Computed example of a mutant assay.
Amino acid sequence: MAELVYRPVIGFARTLFKVWDLKIDCRGSENIPRTGGAVLVSNHISYLDFVFNGLAALPQKRLVRFMAKESVFRHKVSGPLMRGMKHIPVDR
C-alpha cells in the first residue's frame, strides 16, 4: 500500500534534522522485526518524543502507527496528517 503522506513527512523531518545539524543516536533498532506485528513502548516525556520513537523503526524499513488522543485528529492541521499516516485515535 502506498504511503502518500507518511514518507514525505519523514523526509521533511530528516531534512530539518540535517539543516539543524541534529545528530540522533538510536540503539536497539536491530531488535525490531522486519515483518509481522510489533509493539514499541516508550515513556512519553515530551511533545516530540514520538519523532524519536518513529526513527528507531526506520532501519528495519517499518512505519510506526501511533496512538493519539482523538482531539488531535479534529485539528485542522494535525488531523489530516494523522489520518493520512494511519495513526490510531484514542477516545480518553
Rank of each mutant, 00 (worst) to 15 (best):
residue 69 K to F: 01
residue 59 P to D: 07
residue 26 C to K: 12
residue 14 R to V: 10
residue 32 I to G: 04
residue 58 L to P: 11
residue 40 L to P: 05
residue 37 G to N: 05
residue 45 I to G: 05
residue 26 C to F: 10
residue 54 G to D: 09
residue 33 P to K: 00
residue 49 D to K: 03
residue 46 S to Y: 06
residue 41 V to G: 08
residue 51 V to P: 10
residue 62 R to Y: 01
residue 60 Q to C: 04
residue 42 S to R: 09
residue 49 D to Q: 02
residue 21 D to N: 14
residue 39 V to L: 15
residue 53 N to W: 09
residue 18 K to A: 14
residue 73 F to V: 06
residue 18 K to M: 10
residue 24 I to W: 03
residue 9 V to S: 14
residue 77 V to R: 04
residue 11 G to H: 12
residue 38 A to C: 10
residue 25 D to M: 07
residue 44 H to T: 04
residue 23 K to Y: 12
residue 15 T to Y: 12
residue 75 H to V: 05
residue 79 G to W: 01
residue 43 N to I: 08
residue 69 K to W: 01
residue 20 W to P: 06
residue 21 D to F: 11
residue 14 R to W: 12
residue 68 A to S: 09
residue 25 D to W: 14
residue 72 V to G: 12
residue 9 V to A: 15
residue 69 K to S: 05
residue 13 A to N: 14
residue 80 P to I: 08
residue 49 D to T: 01
residue 9 V to M: 15
residue 77 V to E: 04
residue 41 V to E: 02
residue 47 Y to I: 09
residue 38 A to W: 00
residue 24 I to P: 13
residue 12 F to I: 14
residue 39 V to D: 01
residue 37 G to V: 00
residue 70 E to K: 15
residue 58 L to D: 09
residue 18 K to P: 08
residue 34 R to S: 11
residue 68 A to E: 02
residue 57 A to C: 04
residue 73 F to E: 05
residue 45 I to F: 13
residue 48 L to Y: 08
residue 51 V to R: 08
residue 31 N to A: 04
residue 37 G to F: 10
residue 31 N to W: 08
residue 23 K to T: 14
residue 69 K to G: 10
residue 16 L to D: 04
residue 67 M to G: 11
residue 28 G to D: 00
residue 79 G to N: 06
residue 61 K to F: 02
residue 73 F to N: 06
residue 30 E to Q: 07
residue 75 H to L: 11
residue 71 S to N: 09
residue 73 F to R: 08
residue 15 T to N: 02
residue 44 H to E: 10
residue 22 L to Q: 12
residue 72 V to N: 15
residue 18 K to Y: 12
residue 29 S to G: 15
residue 60 Q to L: 04
residue 44 H to Y: 07
residue 32 I to E: 00
residue 63 L to S: 06
residue 79 G to H: 07
residue 47 Y to M: 13
residue 23 K to N: 14
residue 76 K to V: 13
residue 50 F to M: 06
residue 40 L to F: 04
residue 66 F to E: 01
residue 28 G to A: 00
residue 34 R to D: 08
residue 24 I to K: 10
residue 78 S to Y: 11
residue 76 K to P: 15
residue 27 R to D: 08
residue 45 I to W: 14
residue 48 L to E: 03
residue 52 F to N: 13
residue 60 Q to F: 02
residue 60 Q to G: 06
residue 72 V to H: 15
residue 13 A to S: 12
residue 69 K to M: 08
residue 18 K to F: 14
residue 45 I to K: 08
residue 48 L to I: 13
residue 40 L to A: 06
residue 25 D to T: 15
residue 39 V to F: 02
residue 41 V to A: 09
residue 23 K to A: 12
residue 39 V to A: 07
residue 40 L to W: 03
residue 74 R to K: 15
residue 43 N to M: 03
residue 23 K to P: 05
